[in-house]
Design a protein around this nucleic acid. Structure first.
Lengths: 157, 157
DNA sequence: CCTGAAATTGCCGCTAA
DNA sequence: TTAGCGGCAATTTCAGG
């Protein structure tokens, strides 16, 4: 996982596009579609993995199909930005599985969280009993997802 | 991709957890880790795929490593909620690769977008020239990601 | 192109309703 | 007894050299 920026040519980009669509595609098939034979194609894939361009491979699980139909985005403001407070808050976030993504943000609110829950009761429990009691939390603002127009998808390469 | 809710037992959940961590894990190895032999394990995986629990497999690409270090969440309000307007807006969104996720939301703003860009200029181009001119867009509010604390991760199963 | 390993399929046995 | 689930073995396909 080298930090350096890597130069991608058009073939690398095509490989990335295809692997984002289907992370389990056989190298043989992938190679065919980008106009290489398997060996150099595999070399490129390894290079992309080692450079950290491909962070990992994952099965994309549909939350609504595993009993988690409620999704929300929550903006959070902290009352203090002292390092210990932020660190404790980060740790508290990390321990919560329902927080599937978390970002520190610019602007009025300090964080943006993407949260899933089984129902509104479970969400309320999270928002009131867990989140609001996390270290330093001053204010939260929840919005619920009504419909996913574009489910978390591919990065344009 | 059946719509019906599917019953997951503890082994299914373990399979899902492992596949979310590593979507390319060999079935043989996966089977070992969940205490099955390869055949029934593979059968379960197929079942989860067919039920739409596993929507797809994907290589997770690090945006900052492919020249897209800027990430923003944008809330969008439409001036009209007429069906044609919304549909035209959805179509316009779909055509924009930098929008990596889009949701219709409850609350004051109608949509939440997750956007990536190469730099602020590219972001400004998107926000001013593309987004604001999309059908029905009344108001937008952008917040930038300063740091990803929890990059889009696993759904808790 | 070759070799070993993995995925996949057919077939059989066990168990619980 | 039958539907459901797991395992073994044979075959095909793939990864990696």
């Amino acid at each position: 996982m080298a930090k350096s920026t890597i130069v991608l040519d058009e073939i690398d980009r095509r490989i990335l596009r295809l692997l984002q669509q289907d992370g389990r595609i056989a190298v043989t098939l992938l190679a065919e579609q980008v106009g290489l034979s398997a060996t150099p194609c595999l070399r490129r894939i390894r290079r992309l993995e080692e450079a950290g361009v491909i962070a990992r491979y994952a099965a994309v699980v549909e939350p609504s199909r595993v009993g988690l139909p409620i999704q929300a985005f929550v903006q959070v403001a902290l009352s203090s930005h002292a390092e210990e407070v932020a660190a404790a808050f980060h740790k508290a976030l990390a321990a919560r599985g329902e927080v599937i993504a978390a970002y520190a943000m610019s602007g009025g609110m300090d964080y943006m969280l993407h949260v899933v829950a089984a129902d509104f009761e479970a969400y309320a429990d999270f928002a009131l009993k867990a989140l609001l009691r996390m270290p330093g939390v001053k204010e939260t603002r929840s919005s619920f997802v009504l419909m996913a127009l574009k489910p978390p998808g591919a990065v344009p390469v």
